[in-house]
C-alpha cells in the first residue's frame, strides 16, 4: 500500500500546484476483482486512486483524448504500459512536454478471475502485500493469499520491464529488467505444427471473431485518424462476419502493428471471445527480433521501429 500512498501524494501535489490538469489512474471498480480507469482532476478526488495487482488496463491510450487540450496530463504506467508511451511519442501522437509519467515498479499482476472466484464481489481491498512467492489481498474481514504460481497473470510470466522504461516519477523500489527464460514458448509450439494445422488453428480462432474492434480500440499502436475498417468508401473489408473478412481484418491489423506492437497484452485481455491475439502479434515480434536484432518495440526512444527505418545492415535476402 506504500505505492498507493505515494501515488496519491504525488497526484495531490501535481493537481494542487496546477502542474497537471488531470491524473489518469485506477480507481476501485464495481466489483472487488475489477478496477476502472479514473480521471482525477480535483484534489479532493485523489483518494479514489488505487494501486493493487488488479490494475491491468493500459491507460496510455487515453492520452490521445487530451492531445488538443491545454495543460499537462499525468498518467499512471506499469513497465509494460510505459513502452506504449514510447510508441505514442515515436509516432508523434503526443508530445513529451504534455505528459507527466507516473511510473510504478510492478512486481506482476494477478488473474482477476481467481480473485472473483474467491472473494465476495462487494468486498474492498484494504491492503496488499506481494512477495516472491505470493500475493496477499486483505479485505475488511479476511486475508486471501494466492501463490504466484497459480495467480500470476500470463503476460507477467514473461515480463521484461517491471520498472517503466520512461518516467518522470518512479514509485516503488526499482526492479531491474529481467530476461525471462523463453518468452516465445507458445509461439514456438505453434510454429512446430505443419502448415495445415496452423491454418486450421487460426481459422477456428478467427471464425468466432465478433468484429467488435475492442482489440483495435485498446491498442496503443492503432492511432490512425480514420481506420480503414471504418471506411465506407472504399470498402476494404465488408461488415459481413465470415471467416474470409474476419481473417482479412486480423491479418491486416497484425501487419499494421508489426514492429510497432509493444506487447502490452491488452488485445488479449479485452477480446470477449478469447482469441489469442497476442500469440499472433508475438509471432511477428519474434520474427522482427530475429531478423533485425532489435529489442521489444517501445523499449527506448532512440530505437525506432525496425520497419520504420532503413539501414544497410537490414536483411535483404529477397533482393
Amino acid at each position: 500500500m506504500k505505492i498507493q500512498e505515494k501515488l496519491r501524494e504525488i497526484a495531490r501535489k501535481l493537481l494542487a500546484g496546477g502542474e497537471a490538469g488531470v491524473v489518469i489512474g485506477y480507481a476501485a471498480g464495481s466489483e472487488v476483482s475489477r478496477v476502472v480507469p479514473a480521471f482525477i482532476s480535483r484534489e479532493e478526488d485523489v483518494d479514489r486512486l488505487v494501486w493493487n495487482p488488479l490494475c491491468i488496463n493500459n491507460l496510455v491510450k487515453y492520452l490521445l483524448d487530451y492531445r488538443h487540450e491545454p495543460g499537462k496530463v499525468a498518467v499512471v504506467v506499469k513497465g509494460c504500459d510505459s513502452r506504449a508511451i514510447v510508441r505514442l511519442l515515436q509516432d508523434n501522437q503526443i508530445s513529451r512536454e504534455q505528459v507527466i509519467i507516473l511510473g510504478i515498479s510492478c512486481p506482476g499482476l494477478i488473474n482477476p478471475d481467481l480473485v472473483a472466484a474467491r472473494l465476495d464481489p462487494e468486498a474492498q481491498i484494504k491492503a496488499v502485500t506481494t512477495s516472491e512467492q505470493d500475493f496477499s489481498l486483505q479485505t475488511e474481514r479476511e486475508i486471501f493469499t494466492f501463490t504466484r504460481d497459480e495467480a500470476l497473470l500470463e503476460k507477467c510470466r514473461y515480463c521484461e520491464h517491471h520498472t517503466p522504461v520512461i518516467s518522470d516519477f518512479i514509485i516503488g523500489e526499482e526492479i531491474p529488467p529481467t530476461t525471462p527464460l523463453d518468452p516465445f514458448t507458445a509461439v514456438k509450439a505453434l510454429e512446430e505444427l505443419p502448415v495445415e494445422a496452423r491454418s486450421a488453428y487460426w481459422d477456428k480462432q478467427f471464425s468466432r471473431c465478433l468484429r467488435c474492434y475492442a482489440c483495435r480500440n485498446v491498442c496503443p499502436a492503432c492511432t490512425c485518424r480514420e481506420c480503414i475498417f471504418d471506411q465506407a468508401e472504399p470498402c476494404w473489408v465488408t461488415k459481413a462476419n465470415n471467416l474470409s473478412e474476419n481473417m482479412a481484418f486480423h491479418l491486416i491489423r497484425a501487419f499494421h502493428v508489426a514492429g510497432r506492437c509493444v506487447d502490452c497484452g491488452e488485445c488479449d485481455r479485452v477480446c470477449p471471445v478469447n482469441i489469442p491475439l497476442s500469440l499472433l502479434n508475438r509471432k511477428i515480434l519474434k520474427d522482427v527480433k530475429e531478423l533485425f536484432n532489435v529489442p521489444t518495440p517501445g523499449t527506448s526512444l532512440e530505437e525506432l521501429p525496425a520497419l520504420g527505418i532503413f539501414t544497410n545492415s537490414d536483411p535483404d535476402e529477397f533482393m
Binding site: V36, P37, F39, Y62, D65, L210, R211, C212, Y213, A214, R216, N217, V218, V270, P272
Partner: peptide, 13 residues
C-alpha cells in the same frame, strides 16, 4: 464515456 473504448463488445454479446 471518458473511459469507454468505443468498441462493440456490449452490443454484440
Amino acid at each position: 464515456a471518458r473511459r469507454c473504448l468505443g468498441c462493440g463488445i456490449c452490443t454484440y454479446i
